[in-house]
Design a protein around this nucleic acid. Sequence first.
RNA 1: GCGCUCGUAGCUCAGCUGGAUAGAGCACCGGCCUUCGAAGCCGGGAGUCGCAGGUUCGAAUCCUGCCGGGCGCACCA
Length: 551
Amino acid sequence: MIKSQLKQRVDHCYQLGVEKGLWTDAAADSYTIEVPKRDGQGDFSTNLAMIVAGKEKRNPREVASQLVELLGGGDALLDKVEIAGPGFVNFFLNRGIWSSVLPKVIEQGDCFGLADFGEGKKVLVEFVSANPTGPLSVGHGRNAILGDSIARVLAAVGYDVQREYYFNDAGRQMRVLGASTKARYLELLGLDNEFPEDGYQGNYIYDIGRRLQEESGDGLKDKDVLFFKDQAQKHIFADIDSTLKRIGIAFDSYFNEHTLYEDGLIDDVVDKLRNKGLVYEKDDATWFKTTEFGQEQDRVIIKNTGEPTYRLPDIAYHREKFRRGFDWMIDIFGADHIATVPDVMAGIRALDLDDSKVTVILHQFVTLLRGGKQVKMSTRKATFVTVDELVDEVGVDALRFFFLMRKPDSQLEFDLDLATSQSQENPVYYVQYAHARLCSIERQAKEQAVAVGELDAADLLLLKEEEELALLKTMAGYPAMIAGAARDLAPHRVIFFLMELAGQFHRYYNKHKVLGENPELTRARLQFCRALRVVLRNGLHLAGLEAPEKM
RNA sequence: GCGCUCGUAGCUCAGCUGGAUAGAGCACCGGCCUUCGAAGCCGGGAGUCGCAGGUUCGAAUCCUGCCGGGCGCACCA
């Protein structure tokens, strides 16, 4: 916002210097404008002079002084420019400039912070993608929140985002599910049954059996495993859907692996690879020459049973994504899927597709702590915690907030006792409370019949407290934060921004009165608060969180 | 053994394409409610950024090698 105004100015002066022969344009894209950490170093600073000096083996401070001369100062935007340290150029902006964000924030409202540099490009975000063998567990929860948040952030900067869920309802695991379900059904009827050795032991299988019993009595006892598989799948998917809905996630599309077979796309991929000489037979299996793509060994794509391994449909699926015309494809996987990534990428390249259009985000695991001890989880055993249970304990907002607090690369420790027993000190409330407080101030103003007046009736230059200036700067940085979060696929920055903004506001609130004796100042501060509320609400919504008016 | 990833305050983690004197929350201790909501604020102290080299004006950030945790290394997904 204000930074981009400054950036334009610096770019212009830099080019001016190029024309004058002061330096080359070698540093054009590599210098940055940042907010200095310490007071006295200005509102912004640039390392331009040091970059130029580095490239041209010159004295940075000398370059800086030439730049300063071109930049000028003492105008509407720039108050003064200084050289500091090893060659930083510090910008001191005209103090009044900061309050100019307020009208923009208030006018743009819900749209403040949005950008359009995504240019409407089609992005497919694939996430969750859990096969319907059981309810979503904690790991899926992180995947779901991460994927959804990335989708939200990308949409906010102008991408045309589609959320997709890829699943497979065939195969060995699903047969085991069917057999497990049938066994439980028979068991509930008091009949002989054989529970599979590696069957799914979760209680939800009993639940499904019970429902079948309620619906059909013992009429299903002679149905085959396939029937029970279909029934189990139907119920489990319904549960998954309701869980996702509960945490505010809606998919635009579901892609069933099965369609790849029906449409002959699996065979087609094999043919294509075979024609390129990248496939061979050995030990009754079909192998893909992944060694041609930098891997240590070739991989089997069709087993000696005639069944494809997971990587073949994965490759075919990604080719479908390309065919469907996406400009960018993002996969959100748990860290345990890391081995598949090179295989799929190799497949993509082997099919002459551009693998740089595919970005894989691998998130680390979630470790649950209960009673100070790590909860061991296994999908087969009944020892996993579901997303639903987590939501029951901590609520949707806390769930989203906690899952977003860490960058994907970090392991996430979720202390259930802490999240439940100390929910009063939960950071999500800290942020939401700031919003509620702002709403409360507005209500108070209304009750006291304070004349808020029109926006242009307030003298925003009265906002000159240190805390006000800091908050104005933070608000002005909101669009840049979103842009960065989108660029780096790092939605956790939204959370950190919200904590910072809320913290600054709480401090301000305790030190300065919004509704005071001076009507002019009160008017200005009410506008200020209105803008704060907009930014806080936008940020909360961007993270999929509620922005409560009362708590 | 190989690959990926992480290692920053007692704990959990930020640190945005290398930048100026290293940040937050929690926990601990001490203060603040007759005044816009105390789910809040103020004050206190704590780190050889895993270790050792290297790259350069400058490294928590990039490179190499070790150490340690996690995840993978199937004709499972």
